[in-house]
Design a protein around this nucleic acid. Structure first.
Length: 562
RNA sequence: UGGGGCAUGGUGCAAUGGCAGCACACCAGCCUUUGGAGCUGUGGAUCUUGGUUCGAAUCCAGGUGCCCCAGCCA
């Protein structure tokens, strides 16, 4: 619905509309080409959404095509994980294909190019190929094998395919121009020899595997793709992307590049993410601090928040780092709160408990207080919360000597216990170390529900749980994984700016209703933040993840005052 | 010192030759049984130099800065 309202437009959608209007294409078909060699992270969502939405908005279709051209890196496990995450985002596709589905046809196309004298088998060593490619400023040199006969090339290619030659001994190359200023046009490799490991789908039937430039573009052509949307670093590949189908005389899709999405205070590179996992710096790919979709899901993010965030970021061709733009995590979190605020049931939970004893409250009395489930959504109704003489409140909500503008509980001050009574602090009990371990207070029985019949006002409302009824739970408080805005800077550098306090484990108390909350369910703990039940929960000990905190104006004021 | 791409508040986007606007962040206030939410308001930007034009963020030229490319990775 927000799609209709906002009518998102950007240079990509405009280009597609233009193509339809001027007849370059009369339908729209996009493709999502993930390589199944890792888990999806939030940066991928940008590409996923534009591919999906461009097709959808134009009555077209999206094909999910796994780019499995390199058996040394790809695994079936990731195929399933990627589909699972993509479905969670709400992406729909008409079919799933694999680059490997087209290996036979692609091979025929390669032979055709050889027959046309547009491709050749090169026997140079990898080192020689590299040395003869030239540099950014100097032209390359032609391979001594560049002018072999078509017959010899065909024979060699067939024998490469059969596995007669060892890895690295030969490649098939397109014959273009070794002096081309664009490095991608200097006789790019089309096939390399790989004997092991076996391919996750074709097993050991192939000994040669196509390179990205050769496979990807031709697969687009074979599938009748109209718009091939990709990130900025492929801009330089476009001439090659167009060269192949031009020579072959086949369907020519249009490639459009856009800036990829990075996020501040985190890393996106697969290699760096893997180091975090492998070195045990996080608990796994789904550690709630990771930027992977699996992790964000576990943390409590909603698909809507992620999708909205990406949509609000828009699409452009600006690149400030790593072929992309850097999104602000604060904006992501704000988009998340926006969604969660409207949809999450409120509950009371105390994560850093301090005992409060209401001295004038009857010892054995228990009252059921009525509490609103979601002030943003009246249809969510109300619930009962038990109240008794001994409570827990948040340590932050009491100060023995209050700083200026502190309105919460302190000796002599009266506050409201949410949905319960006004209480006034009378005195405290300390331990040997001088720490406050008990706060004593008296309540005003006429303020039940939270209003005083005499019109008396209090400046603060604090949350609480009844000690006798509360459920003890584990609370995992998360913060940014890195304390530097751009940890990507430098190679080793990113580990040096890991935030040592990105995870804090607390033992807290929650209202009874929460004892049986299902894994994955989300709540707002009033005045604290949004929390989500973690999969590590047990009946004895539920575990809650902090999804995102509530904005804390007081904390900000206090910090600024210092 | 080759080729390609890009420069608009702190960040991300808009303005498609006609009053530089939006979101987040920031600041001030109102309201509040969440110091949440909501509401109101303030401040802050067209990389630079020239040119074309009645008029330029937009078109042209030079300069500067940033991003990407030398895998048998994608």
């Amino acid at each position: 619905m927000s799609l209709e309202e906002n009518k998102p437009t950007d240079f990509i959608r405009e280009a597609v509309a233009e193509d339809l209007k001027n007849g370059r294409f009369n339908y729209v078909r996009t493709r999502l080409p993930p390589e199944p060699n890792g888990y999806l992270h939030i940066g991928h969502v940008k590409a996923f959404m534009i591919d999906y939405l461009v097709a959808k908005e134009n009555g077209g279709e999206l094909i999910l095509r796994f780019d499995d051209t390199n058996p040394t890196k790809e695994e079936t496990e990731f195929v399933d994980a990627i589909m699972d995450d993509a479905r969670w985002l709400g992406i729909e596709w008409v079919k799933v294909t694999y680059a490997s589905d087209y290996f036979d046809e692609l091979y025929e196309w390669a032979k055709k190019l050889v027959q046309m004298g547009k491709a050749y088998v090169d026997d140079q060593t990898p080192e020689a190929v590299s040395a003869n490619r030239g540099t950014l400023t100097e032209p390359g040199k032609n391979s001594p094998f560049r002018d072999r006969s078509v017959e010899e090339n065909l024979d060699l290619l067939e024998r490469m395919k059969k596995g007669e030659f060892p890895d690295g001994s030969r490649i098939l190359r397109a014959k273009i121009d070794m002096a081309h200023p664009n490095m991608n046009m200097r006789d790019p490799a089309m096939y390399r020899i790989i004997h092991n490991p076996p391919h996750h789908r074709t097993g050991d039937t192939w000994k040669i595997y196509p390179m990205y430039d050769w496979a990807h573009g031709q697969n687009d052509s074979m599938e009748g793709i109209t718009h091939s949307l990709c990130s900025l670093e492929y801009r330089d590949h476009r001439p090659l992307y167009e060269w192949f189908p031009e020579q072959l005389g086949v369907w020519k899709p249009r490639q459009i590049e856009f800036a990829r999405l990075n996020l501040n205070y985190t890393v996106m590179s697969k290699r760096k993410l893997r180091r975090l996992v492998e070195e045990g710096l996080v608990s796994g790919w789904d550690d709630p601090r990771m930027p992977t979709l699996r992790a964000m899901r576990r943390r409590g993010y909603t698909a809507k928040a992620i999708v909205d965030f990406v949509a609000e970021m828009g699409y452009s061709t600006v690149a400030t780092s790593n072929s992309g733009v850097t999104g602000d995590i604060a904006k992501l979190e704000e988009t998340l709160r926006d969604d969660l605020n409207k949809t999450s049931a409120r509950r009371m939970a105390v994560i850093r408990p301090l005992k409060v004893i209401i001295d004038n409250y009857p010892d054995d009395l228990v009252e059921e207080m009525e509490a609103i489930n979601n002030p943003e959504d009246p249809s969510a109704g109300t619930r009962k919360v038990p109240f008794s003489k001994v409570l827990y409140i948040e340590q932050d909500d009491f100060r023995e000597t209050p700083p200026p503008k502190y309105f919460r509980l302190y000796p002599g001050n009266e506050v409201r216990l949410r949905y319960a009574y006004f209480i006034k602090c009378t005195h405290v009990v300390k331990n040997d170390a001088g720490e406050v371990v008990e706060v004593h207070a008296t309540y005003d029985p006429t303020t039940r529900g939270g209003d005083s019949p005499d019109g008396r006002k209090v400046k603060s409302t604090i949350h609480w749980v009844s000690a006798k009824h509360a459920k003890e739970v584990e609370i995992r408080m998360y913060d940014r994984l890195f304390n530097k805005e751009n940890p990507e800077e430098g190679e080793e550098g990113f580990l040096a700016c890991l935030n040592p306090n990105s995870l804090e484990i607390l033992t807290g108390y929650v209202e009874p209703l929460l004892a049986t909350a299902e894994v994955g369910s989300r709540f707002q703990f009033e005045r604290l933040g949004y929390f989500c039940v973690d999969k590590d929960s047990t009946t004895e000990k539920p575990v809650f993840n902090l999804t995102v905190n509530l904005k804390d104006t007081w904390a900000k004021m206090e910090k600024k005052g210092k």
